[in-house]
Amino acid sequence: MTEKVKRQTVKTIVTLVLIIGGILVAIPFIWMILSSFKPDAEILEIPPTIIPKHVTFQHYIDLFQQLDFGIYLKNTLILVVFGFVGMFFNAMAGYAFAKFNFRGREKFFYLILATMMIPGQVTMIPVYLILNQMGLTNTMAGIILPGLVAAFSIFLFRQFMTTIPTDLIEAARLDGAGEFFIFFRLIVPVAKPIFAVQGILAFIGAWNNFLWPLIIANDESLYPLSVGLQLLQGEHGNEFGLQMAGSAFMVVPIIIIFFIFQKYIVEGFTMSGLK
């Protein structure tokens, strides 16, 4: 066997293994999509049909007509918008740590890094008590505030922004530009790659946010999709078609966004210097 033939065989085997593994990983998704289009009677059939015999969109219609998925979607989108606001707070902090000299810089930065080590379970109860004291339980603000900024994101912004030449900022200052003008008009465009990565991660994080809405929100009118879906699972335990449609409605948008922006996420990991 020549070297070239051998290499080709190895590559074929690798591809085959990847395909089999990929199918195994994707089974839950495929099953979710297929089941969501089956009528209730067909879903409980044994043996199960793989491709739906009678395709129905009824479950998706029910999500909005019988259940309140319209409201849940609106709340989730609010969370997403504030996820982006939080990203800008992270970026501003990262920029200040990267490009300014000020008293207490190191101390503040280490304080921020230290928060990364605190496990969520330790802060969960006190944060609830604090929000309760502030009168923010059962409000949108109470859901949004605890997770608005993230130390790791500040760290990544700082890492990226140290590579922006200081001369560029100095030149803008000489032209009389204000600091906020410099940040939004100069820094943000230059730092586009890191904003792309953090933007996608902020979107995914906000879209999937589940624990704080569950703890803080009592009114159904404040539920995002994730908590709404859990309610659906509890109240319609045996209506698997409806459950699968609800899940698909949550999962498919994220997957589409991920496949469109995949390149940036992978670059983001290379950028963070994990070699």
Binding site: V25, F29, F210, Q233, S247, I255, F258, V266
Partner: peptide, 27 residues
Amino acid sequence: IFKLFRGIYYMPAITNIIAVAVIWGFL
């Protein structure tokens, strides 16, 4: 094809945990 599979193997990581629970509860 390799890029496609990279995406497929990453899919579970970005899936909401409640959706995961609903799907896997059914499986």
